[in-house]
Design a protein around this nucleic acid. Structure first.
Lengths: 348, 348
DNA sequence: ATACACAACGAAAACGTTTTCGTGTTGACA
DNA sequence: TGTCAACACGAAAACGTTTTCGTTGTGTAT
């Protein structure tokens, strides 16, 4: 039970009375070393459970085989699915992942990136925090890229930055959703969305508008509820409820609701039910995201799946491909993951 | 826009025509160096945005300032809350976290630990995979510990292993929950639990039994449903539903249900409603966990909160304390986080 | 006998730090 | 003038690898 620290090449060399080089070569099965000594060294190494020190390798190779993830929040079904996707292909290709949470804060995003950019990782996969999007200050991304460290952004991205991106077609996804509502006969479709500085909020709102256009209908400004999602921290759900309640009371003919995320949809359904409306008979609902709420709500929520895991997988592939391509490839791609409208019981 | 790789001490030294040692000392504000040269070097370093290479530091100090997390699954509200807690205090104390997912597999757990144990991290925080619990093979944990790398286990732990642990009092938590149901007048309380090899399942079942004992009532074996949670992968929820439906049909007098996790409770509520039962009038429900489902279900679910974030914070504190205590402290503690019964609308 | 190929191994540099231990140059003081 | 402390700095080792480039010794062909 005595503590056995990891054995090193040097110790093996000393023990077997050969040089460090010989040990290293023997363990990597070099033809430079005779079979006899190779056998001896390999046996000894196995006995003592030798494993090369990762840090030393990282220093020598100037690559760490780990990728850094920076996301705004981890207690979030979508982001954890993305992480799962990243981890899956990263592991498959011999990489580890190290995660940093920005907690939607600009400063924490910057700090976190700095902590990791000094050699700890080979590249970033990240989704931009709301605060950063609001301030539109992207210097930390550009600096990192200029240092030769590749970045892949997913979901929340900005065009100004030169890097690979993995996104969904928010516009198309929400247009499809709203089209579905309109096709189902809804005449008064409301949208519950976020302020425009969150790009996905803006795009999903736009998709809503374009669906009306395709149906030769004109949207009603009263039916567009833009909530300040800085407020949607645990506590402020109540204020959201009252906002939604007002929406319904001011527009009694609402027969369809499209919400840009799962929680908004669930809350809206709750309010509607409270007001005596039947789902989906009186009013139909569609949400946006992969969440677990949608699946297990009653009625279960029709939703636009954004395939978070697949986004993560693709992001990891893009990053690792770039890391392992030695020619300085300055060509960046934007991959669009198809959304999918998952029909459940909140729509007819 | 030319690519500027991170500058090193050596380059600064060369540029300023001093030795590497001088640069290093100047940047660490050593009194050995004159104010003049310090100013000059520090200015230059700031200009070129010098930051010490983490890998080199790790190699030199033989500590990486990162902690490894191994969890069975990340797409899970409880685990992501734990991670958030870990990340919070880790960051506050200058550590990074690197996550590995075992995906409930023994092999992946072992592989993941080996990948990280070779110098990449200073210590582990982990929760054991179901498969490992089933096989009861804990050699990889013991080996890691014997190498001098501390481990902190949380939630799913085993006594055989000598390390710090952070758990909740599963027995007490579930006993309280069931007591609540019995106090509320329930006569026929069912439990939906897991097979016994998952320690938390076993303990929660035991709490259920002890609550009966406290109430001088004797449990009815027919009301104990042990589902094989190896099956509860996305797809097999249906089979769970039919099992629960059978439970209700075979025992029409059930007026209370305690489920050892959130999903079981939600599904049971759905089935009950389908069978025409009113919640909480006809039958009351209590679940177990922090999840988002509980809060937003209709009716919202009374639940035993296990304070995942707090568990993570405590685990990180235990680990970092041990890492930074140089005296070989061979004393391990088990911290119990208090559970909390959060009363919502699924109980009277 | 000379040259030369080849087999088997070791020395040393390199990755980027920090730190210990010199070393040379001052200035003060007896 | 000689001694000694203080000051400012550099050389080198160390962390654990891999790899390049020797350096031996042996055997073979000329």
């Amino acid at each position: 039970m005595a503590m056995k620290k990891q054995i090193t090449l040097k110790q093996i060399a000393k023990e077997l009375d050969v040089s460090i080089s010989t040990v290293s070569k023997a363990l990597r099965n070099s033809i430079e070393i005779s079979e006899d000594t190779k056998d001896k060294i390999q046996a000894f190494a196995k006995l003592y459970n030798y494993r090369p020190n990762n840090i030393a390798l990282s220093l020598k190779n100037r690559k760490t085989k780990t990728i850094g993830i920076i996301i705004p929040e981890i207690v979030h079904h979508f982001f954890s699915k993305v992480i799962r996707g990243i981890e899956l292909v990263a592991n498959k290709r011999g990489y580890n992942v190290i995660v940093g949470l920005s907690n939607e804060s600009f400063d924490k995003e910057v700090i976190n990136m700095q902590m990791l950019a000094n050699g700890s990782i080979d590249g970033f996969i990240l989704s931009i925090s709301k605060e950063t999007l609001l301030q539109q200050d992207y210097h930390h991304f550009n600096e990192t890229i200029n240092q030769g460290m590749p970045i892949v952004m997913f979901d929340r991205v900005v065009n100004e930055i030169n890097c690979d991106k993995v996104i969904i077609d928010d516009l198309k996804g929400s247009k499809n959703a709203v089209n579905k509502l309109l096709d189902n006969g809804c005449k008064q479709v409301a949208i519950i969305t976020t302020k425009d500085y969150v790009s996905v909020g803006r795009l999903r709102t736009q998709g809503y508008l374009e669906a009306f256009e395709e149906h030769k209908m004109s949207p009603n400004a009263n039916l567009i509820l833009k909530v300040d999602d800085a407020l949607v921290s645990e506590d402020h759900i109540e204020s959201l409820e009252t906002e939604v309640e007002q929406l319904f009371k001011n527009n009694t003919k609402i027969d369809g609701v499209f919400a840009v995320n799962e929680l908004y949809a669930i809350i809206a359904m709750k309010v509607a039910r409270k007001l005596g409306l039947k789902i989906p008979e009186d009013v139909q609902f569609i949400g946006f995201t992969d969440g677990v709420l949608s699946k297990h709500a009653t009625p279960s929520l029709t939703t636009v799946s954004q395939h978070g895991q697949q986004m993560g997988e693709k992001a990891a592939e893009l990053l690792i491909d770039k890391l392992e391509k030695d020619d300085q490839d300055d060509h960046y791609q934007t991959v669009v993951i198809e959304t999918e409208l998952i029909l459940r019981n909140s729509t007819k």
